[in-house]
Design a protein around this nucleic acid. Structure first.
Length: 847
RNA sequence: GCCCCCAUAGCCCAAUUGGCAGAGGCGGGAGACUUAAAAUCUCUGUGUUGUGGGUUCGAGUCCCACUGGGGGUACCA
């Protein structure tokens, strides 16, 4: 890359290393010269690397510093390799903290948000991230959320966005509903408040329709995503094979004759149809409507009391597995379709309304929960599978293993797996059941009763019902003139209280209507931002298809593991849905994923309550950007946590100064850039080329910490080569091999320490930017060693070392080894049974 | 409870396919420079590779069990 010479900042030749001076000298340079904007002209292979975009929380912190240092290594490495790299950055700028801040300060959330972004952006720029700022986007900009709303309309048109009444997770503090994925250990993922259940009418995305594809397409990600993330998603989707079984419910006395109704069927899901003969009662979820429908008049009051009581039980209590079982009898019976037996029907909270069908057949002998319930309520326990263990009715421990079916009619004698398939066949033949696959995944609850998010672009018309706002009327803008208390959570969306905003006309009939007052979960915003980066300023469409086709999918995504089943699952769902709408041509958004570790202090996550936070700004002021970045990278492998108490940014700074002085030495030696390194000192050249070759392999494997170590080794080697050692005079800094080595150091360092690398590059007499210097060419001839050290072992113990030519034959090496005096001595005349030769490095003699 | 990951020097961590356990850093120790110190530089590394077993000529590396640590998930029928 040729930049005009006047673009090179001035420097003083006698200076000492000072990170502050370097940051001053090069700060703004890359931005001004658009060093990191992709060419997008087809002249080089395109690659898209992306860090999970940040929420503008106030300022950059240690966690950002770690994550973005990692992503930047990948981006800068690829740039050096000659790829046309797209490395954009933007802001996940909708969300609750802005709203809470606005309430506190009697302001509009936008004010706080965009002020934070200003601060944080300048911190990012100081941090030297190789981002293309011309593509910066904010999810809270109308230019962005217009297309979030547009996408919602597409989902709505396809039936993938819908409303339903359902018991939902409710955060009493944030006064809003939460998606299943946002409930962590029964508490709100955001604020930690115990979550309660509330029955509400809410918007959902039909992600369950994609459950099988979300599972199957993980094949594409195998080996490129961390295994544990894939495992977490697999668990979350929770595929389980089993059967639906229909049970006829006996009519009650009251309903028996009614309109000749034969009574209703209820269907249960079970993974154990083989135990059907062992079912002794039925349980329906107490909080499901089904319970109310089924209960007879005599037991209705008891059920209602029970349901009332459940409201006071928090999710945390409810989930405690050692909690004793409770429930009420419904006064009804169901008929076992295989045996004709009458089974009493109960309602309990240990059956979940929104898993399976919300009702189960209980087989207490072979399911611990059912057994606990049976023992509490005094219900029958019947063993139908002999596992050789003692009778569960006696021990109180259900047997769930394999064995032989008993007391099960024609299933008798079969093993578990055979019995399962046979039972499904029988149910099928009789039309009272069928094999099925059930998923744990629920639909994604996307509406939120909060202000600072994208309004759901729907109008509720008394005549036309639910009417989508037409495309040409998007975006539905958030009101501007609201602040403070108006935004306070009241259990319904703050937008509902702003009459001038709510009241509108129906786009279909023109009659008076009301807008939907909920806003979208911010995970909707982040489910497609990586696509928008391909054409962030396109005002006419959600994105430019051609640009998306050119750049996506993302080649390398970098971010924290905390999004394993939130953002990452949602984004995968969006990608598949958009693929089905023929908006994009790929089915997985992120080809590879790197989870960086956390930054800890003293073995614990930094937190205000522990008072162990480390202020990034202070670290940067004390040690400089480069030293902090280098420390993040060097401390441990990228996916491991970094404990700030264990690392030494001071050591990193020292190393950078050493490296930088090498460039200064070369500069003072007067050696001109562009000299042919061919005449240079060979062993230093070998070190340089070996280091560069290994670095590429290590970078491909994301072993960034090792690359830093190897760079340190090279720096040490160059220093020694220049100064010489006690025994030998040095080369001085003028040797072409020294220049070659120091240039390699500058390029390697450009991935981790951009300011130092840039300054070294300038000292070496090159035009900026070092970021575009190109990866050093490796001379294969310098990688091969002429001789190798062969280890000679006797019985696995090292007895001698031989310097041998690398291309020595096995036979020659064996002979040399056997001729060794040390070997003969340790053999001591023993009989040689076998000689293993791995030329040129090893001989093992077995006696 | 179930699933996954990890364990190498005082500490953070390296060690292509099984082949000499040590690259790099921190800390420690010794020394040089200094009146002294800081800074800088030089020198300095023997350890049950968590434990026990197995496979192999050979195991940090592969297999099994266990221990310790971390993470995920949990009335999911």
């Amino acid at each position: 890359m040729s930049q005009p010479a006047q673009g090179t900042p001035q420097q003083d030749e006698t200076e000492e290393y000072s990170f502050a001076a370097l940051e001053e000298r090069w700060g703004g340079y890359w931005e001004q010269h658009r060093t990191f904007a992709p060419l997008d002209d087809g002249s080089a292979e395109r690659r898209y690397v992306l860090d999970m975009f940040p929420y503008p929380s106030g300022d950059l912190h240690m966690g950002h510093a770690e994550a973005f240092a990692m992503g930047d290594v990948v981006a800068r490495y690829w740039m050096q390799q000659g790829y046309d790299v797209l490395h954009p950055i933007g802001w996940d700028s909708f969300g609750l903290p802005a709203e809470n801040a606005a309430i506190k300060r009697n302001a509009h959330p936008a004010e706080w948000t965009y002020k934070n972004i200003d601060t944080q952006k300048s911190s990012f720029q100081r941090y030297g991230i190789s981002a293309d700022w011309s593509r910066e986007l904010h999810t809270s900009d109308p230019e962005y959320y217009r297309w979030t709303q547009w996408l919602f309309q597409q989902f709505h048109a396809k039936g993938l966005a819908y409303r339903k009444d359902s018991p939902v997770n409710w955060c009493p503090k944030d006064q809003t509903v939460l998606a299943n994925e946002q409930v962590v250990n029964g508490s709100c993922e955001r604020c930690g408040t115990p979550v309660t259940k509330k029955s509400l009418n809410q918007w959902y995305f039909r992600i369950t329709e994609y459950a099988d594809r979300l599972l199957e397409d993980m094949q594409q990600l195998e080996g490129h995503w961390p295994e544990r993330v894939l495992a977490m998603q697999r668990n979350w989707i929770g595929r389980s094979e089993g059967a639906h079984v229909d049970f006829r419910v006996e009519p009650t006395a009251a309903t028996a004759g009614q309109n000749g109704q034969p009574g209703q069927d209820i269907t249960v899901f079970t993974t154990r149809p083989d135990t059907l003969f062992g079912a002794t009662f039925m349980v329906v979820a107490a909080d499901a409507d089904l319970a109310l429908e089924l209960v007879d008049a005599e037991h209705r009051e008891a059920l209602e009391t029970y349901r009332e009581g459940l409201k006071n039980v928090s999710e945390i209590e409810r989930q405690a597995t050692d909690r004793s079982k409770t429930g009420v009898f419904l006064g009804r019976h169901a008929i076992n379709p295989l045996t004709g037996e009458r089974l009493p029907m109960w309602a309990s909270d240990y059956v979940l309304a929104d898993y399976g069908t919300g009702a189960i057949m209980a087989v207490p002998a072979h399911d611990q929960r059912d057994l606990d319930f049976a023992r509490t309520m005094g219900l029958d326990v019947r063993r139908v599978l002999d596992t050789g263990e003692e009778d569960p009715a006696v021990t109180g421990t259900a047997t769930t293993g394999d064995g032989t079916l008993v007391n099960s009619g024609e299933l008798d004698g079969l093993a578990k797996a055979e019995a399962i398939s046979r039972a499904i066949e029988i149910l099928d033949e009789r039309g009272t059941g069928r094999g099925t696959v059930n998923y744990r995944l629920r639909d994604w609850l996307l509406s939120r009763q909060r202000f600072w998010g994208a309004p759901i672009p729907i109008v509720h018309c008394p005549d036309c019902g639910e009417v989508p706002v037409p495309e040409d009327q998007l975006p539905i803008l958030l009101p501007q003139d609201v602040a403070g208390e108006q935004l306070a959570p009241k259990g319904k969306s703050p937008l509902a209280g702003i009459e001038s905003w709510v009241n509108t006309t129906c786009p279909r009939c023109g009659g008076a209507s009301r807008r939907d007052t909920d806003t979208m979960d911010t995970f909707v915003d982040s489910s497609w931002y990586y696509m928008r980066f391909a054409s962030p300023n396109d005002d006419d469409q959600v994105f430019d298809r051609a640009a998306v086709d050119r750049w996506l999918p993302v080649e390398q995504y970098v971010g924290g593991v905390e999004h394993a089943i939130l953002h990452l699952l949602y984004s995968r769902f969006f990608t598949k849905a958009l693929y089905d709408m023929d908006l994009i041509s790929f089915t997985e958004p992120f080809k590879a994923l790197l989870n960086q570790g956390q930054v800890l202090n003293g073995g614990k996550a930094m937190s205000k309550s522990l008072g162990n936070g480390v202020d990034l700004g202070e670290q940067l002021d004390t040690f400089g950007v480069d030293a902090v970045r280098l420390t993040m990278i060097f401390a441990s492998p990228p996916e491991d946590d970094v404990d700030w108490a264990d690392v030494s940014p001071g050591g990193s700074a020292k190393f950078l100064a050493r490296a930088w002085r090498l460039a200064q030495d070369v500069e003072s030696s007067g050696a001109a850039p562009g000299t042919d390194p061919d005449g240079g000192e060979r062993s230093l050249r070998q070190l340089t080329h070996r280091t560069v070759a290994d670095a590429a392999r290590l970078l491909d494997d994301h072993k960034f910490n090792v690359v830093v170590a190897r760079t340190m080794e090279l720096v040490n080697g160059v220093r020694k080569a220049i100064d010489g050692t006690a025994g030998a005079a040095g080369l001085g800094a003028g040797d072409p091999a020294v220049r070659e080595a120091v240039e390699a150091v500058a390029i390697l360092l450009s991935l981790f320490a951009p300011y130092t690398a840039e300054d070294m590059w300038a000292k070496l007499g090159h035009e900026p930017s070092v970021a575009r210097a190109g990866w050093p060419a490796v001379d294969e001839a310098l990688l091969v060693q002429d001789t190798a050290t062969a280890v000679v072992q006797v019985k696995g113990k090292v007895r001698d070392r031989l310097e041998v030519p690398v291309d020595i034959s096995a036979a020659d090496l064996e002979q040399l080894a056997l001729a060794s005096e040390a070997v003969q001595r340790s053999l001591d005349g023993a009989e040689i049974r076998k000689v293993i030769v791995r030329e040129p490095k090893l001989v093992n003699i077995v006696v």
